[in-house]
């Protein structure tokens, strides 16, 4: 089997799963909707105030929603045995992990990217900020899944996985959070977001290059 076939097979299986089980992409979306709807009740409904916190709330909501799906990366496969199949396959593990993360990014990311601009209108943000937020979330979701894959791979067989995954991933999400939200804030203040945007993209590329390697090493360690 060629390299391409193996990873596309992984990706295709992932998409079939998404089509069959709505909860896979609907749950993170629901979580995101709940977080974003709750905040105005806590801080008040003046549009000036909402505008100031809106970018942050939407961004953090998207990050947490993505974090919620991390256990899905490897846990089920470990339980039904298909993980062993992946590990024993003749393919570079990094490539297979990459295929899976890419599929998951689309599956989870697309609903979030569509929902983010909608919520930015509820937070009285102008249209250009809404677009920038969608772009920022589009970069942040795969970044978070990539760095999260390392933690998820390490904790496949460990106790207390969910909360520990969050502790491990939290420090690694800070750059994408700072630059992603920073770009939207820059647009809100009428300034150029180019620098923030390119730094956020750089962090994504950095994660893209290194984290499949780290995640495959992690998977080998935890399933040893």
């Amino acid at each position: 089997m060629s390299l391409r076939l193996a990873s596309t097979a992984v990706a295709r299986r992932e998409f079939q799963l998404f089509a069959r089980r709505k909860s896979d992409w609907a749950n993170p979306l629901m979580f995101f909707v709940i977080v974003c709807s709750l905040f105005p009740f806590a801080v008040g409904s003046e549009s000036e105030r909402l505008r100031l916190i809106g970018v942050g709330v939407i961004f953090v909501g998207a990050l947490l929603a993505t974090l919620l799906t991390l256990p899905r990366l490897f846990d089920e496969d470990a339980r039904d045995g298909s993980l062993d199949l992946l590990l024993s396959s003749n393919e570079p593990l990094a490539m297979l992990i990459l295929a899976r993360v890419a599929a998951l990014s689309f599956g989870i990311g697309a609903p979030l990217i569509l929902a983010a601009p909608l919520f930015s209108f509820l937070y009285a943000l102008p249209a250009d900020v809404a677009l920038m937020l969608a772009l920022g979330v589009a970069i942040a979701v795969p970044t978070l899944l990539l760095v999260g894959a390392i933690a998820a791979a390490l904790l496949v067989s460990a106790r207390g996985g969910a909360i520990l995954t969050a502790v491990l991933v939290l420090p690694l999400t800070i750059p994408t959070l700072i630059f992603g939200a920073g770009a939207a804030l820059k647009v809100l203040f009428g300034e150029s977001p180019v620098a923030e945007l390119s730094l956020q993209a750089a962090y994504l590329l950095f994660a893209l290059a290194l984290s499949p390697l780290a995640a495959s090493a992690a998977l080998k360690i935890s399933t040893d």
Partner: peptide, 25 residues
């Protein structure tokens, strides 16, 4: 060969990341 391709791909991506950081700076 696959491994080599992967490593090369990784290096290209890292170079692109560096370029982005430099433009931002």
């Amino acid at each position: 060969q696959k491994r080599l391709a992967l490593i090369l791909g990784g290096l290209v991506i890292l170079a692109a990341a560096t370029a982005l950081v430099l433009t931002a700076l």
